[in-house]
Design a protein around this nucleic acid. Structure first.
Length: 494
RNA sequence: GGGCCGGUAGCUCAGUCUGGCAGAGCAUCGGACUUUUAAUCCGAGUGUCCUGGGUUCGAAUCCCAGCCGGCUCACCA
């Protein structure tokens, strides 16, 4: 029950009472809609092109939310918004007779169905000249203001429905996100990948470096974690002979919230037998370009005033060259924590005490390189310390065949030639566990015995990929904050 | 976690510096108006000024603590 003390709500409850007193159901079960607002507009234009009198041929029923009400005495204009757009409706007393009285109890925010011929007013506004109308759902609370809309960021995130009602941009982003996912799925399917679903509740939160959410399963009296990645389960499927698999799904990381991080986010991971990271690179640039063209109509996206061109081929550079050019530091010449830390301090970076070598390099990358990567680029060949699941380069065991794709200063994907040597994999996971003990404040990957057993059965040479869907949507919509592309972002309790 | 900024009517915001009746527009309520469209015109009511303390004759305003949000730094893929 809404607070009855609110004058605005009380007025609407009074309307509700009057509507019921007339024997009208303010929440009827169905409506016969013949046209969306967009279809009605198209219909009017088509009739006009054919020179047909719209009033005779263009009777439509549209339904939507009342966004504006302009009462003129014996005529009332209202703007009806549905999922496709808006259209004006004109209600006139001489056409509606006794039912005209009832519009006194309509408010902005109510859902309404109107039926009548299409016409244009003197000013040329496409309009439904209403012959019949029906209240579809009475709204008891006022909407945000018509001109400025809803601006308060907190309310926009907490009550996204109000954001969607008032802000065209919010609707656009939600729809675009859906089309990005649909497009990606279609392209993966077309490439012969099969879509799979793997567990979200796992006993070992492995496959990435992240602090997990933990929970408890009562029936089996087991502690479980929410997955931090889909990687190791997808590889089990490749071992099982599903040669091209992918999963689009939510993963969970028990970490902070900022412009590019939300604790639950969506990834697309794919694994392709008999491919290596060069094949995956080509796939990433083709997919990204393909989605951009399909969804936005152009390979160019605008991010903070800069044009990002996603047309393949993207620049390919080694991580070593890129870091050396940006910072003057060659990480291969700094093979331990002391030397790398000293070099980083020399160029003015703050370095914590208890930080692993991989942790240092990660900071070096994100501070000196990442912000400059506006145009799409693949950084290749990461140090083995940072990449416990990637295969070493045949020519240099200090590096692995791994790349990350960047655009608009954001990391948008991570991929490698997958490590399929079970002995090497076991050693790497053991190394991660050792680092976990050594650097208590840092997250490392974990040893997953069940996965190692699977790997010992033999995994074919495989190219794997992980794409951040949220960041991809940020890229295509030019948004700076992940909260703008996640409908219900994580917030503190109000 | 640190720094900076913000929280006032349903919404968008003034007012805070320099303490003195709680404000505007939209929305709402009453009235006029049959082609308006940020409709217009006449009239009316808005409220936990984020919360709790304190200073003061008097606090939205000053001080302290806290809550929530934004940005940023740190942390973190």
């Amino acid at each position: 029950m809404p607070e009855p003390e609110s004058q605005l709500i009380r007025a609407r409850l009074d309307s509700l009472t009057r509507i019921r007193a007339r024997g009208v159901d303010p929440y009827p079960h169905r409506v016969d809609r013949t046209h969306t607002t967009a279809e009605a507009l198209a219909c009017l234009e088509s009739l006009e092109r054919q020179g047909v009198d719209a009033a005779s041929g263009g009777c439509v029923s549209v339904a939507g939310r009342i966004m504006q009400l302009r009462g003129m005495g014996k005529a009332t204009f209202l703007d009806i918004q549905d999922g496709q757009g808006r259209i004006q409706a004109l209600l006139r007393r001489n056409l509606l007779q006794e039912s005209y009285q009832g519009i006194r109890d309509l408010d902005i925010g109510d859902w309404l169905g109107v039926t009548g011929p299409l016409m244009r007013t003197r000013t040329g506004e496409p309009t439904v000249e209403v012959r019949q109308w029906k209240l579809l759902s009475k709204s008891l609370r006022p909407l945000p203001e018509k001109w400025h809309g809803l601006a308060d960021v907190e309310t926009r995130y907490r009550r996204r429905y109000l954001d969607l009602i008032s802000n065209e941009d919010a609707r656009r982003i939600a729809a675009l996100r859906s089309r990005v996912v649909a497009s990606l799925r279609r392209m993966m399917d077309a490439r012969g990948f099969i879509e799979v679903e793997t567990p979200m509740l796992v006993s070992v939160p492995a496959g990435g470096t992240a602090r997990p959410f933990s929970t408890h399963y009562r029936a089996l009296n087991r502690d479980l974690f929410l997955r931090i990645a889909t990687e190791l389960y997808l590889k089990r499927l490749v071992i099982g002979g599903l040669e091209k698999v992918y999963e689009i799904g939510r993963i969970f990381r028990n970490e902070g919230v900022d412009l590019t991080h939300n604790p639950e986010f969506t990834t697309m991971e794919s694994y392709e037998a008999f491919a290596d990271y060069n094949d995956v690179m080509r796939m990433v640039e083709e997919l990204t370009h393909g989605i951009a063209v399909e969804v936005t109509g152009s390979p160019l996206v605008m991010v903070e005033g800069e044009t990002v061109d996603l047309t393949p081929p993207w620049t390919r550079r080694t991580l070593r060259d890129e870091i050396r050019d940006r910072s003057g530091i060659d990480f291969l010449n700094c093979p331990d924590v002391e030397s790398l830390g000293a070099e980083m301090k020399r160029i003015g970076l703050e370095v914590g005490r208890q930080v692993s070598w991989g942790g240092l390099l990660d900071k070096l990358l994100s501070d000196t390189v990442e912000p400059h990567l506006t145009q799409p680029i693949f950084l290749m060949d990461y140090p083995v310390e940072m990449s416990p699941l990637a295969k070493k380069r045949p020519d240099d065991g200090r590096l692995v065949e791994r790349f990350e794709g960047f655009a608009a200063g954001m990391e948008i994907c991570n991929a490698f030639t997958e490590l399929n040597d079970p002995v090497d994999q076991r050693e790497r996971m053991e190394r991660q566990e050792a680092l976990n003990l050594q650097y208590r404040d840092e997250e490392m990957d974990r040893l997953d015995e069940d996965f190692l057993v699977a790997l010992e059965h033999g995994m074919p040479p495989t190219g794997g990929l992980g794409v951040g869907i949220d960041r991809l949507v940020m890229l295509f919509t030019g948004q700076r904050s992940i909260r703008e592309v996640v409908l219900f972002p994580q917030l503190r309790d109000a």
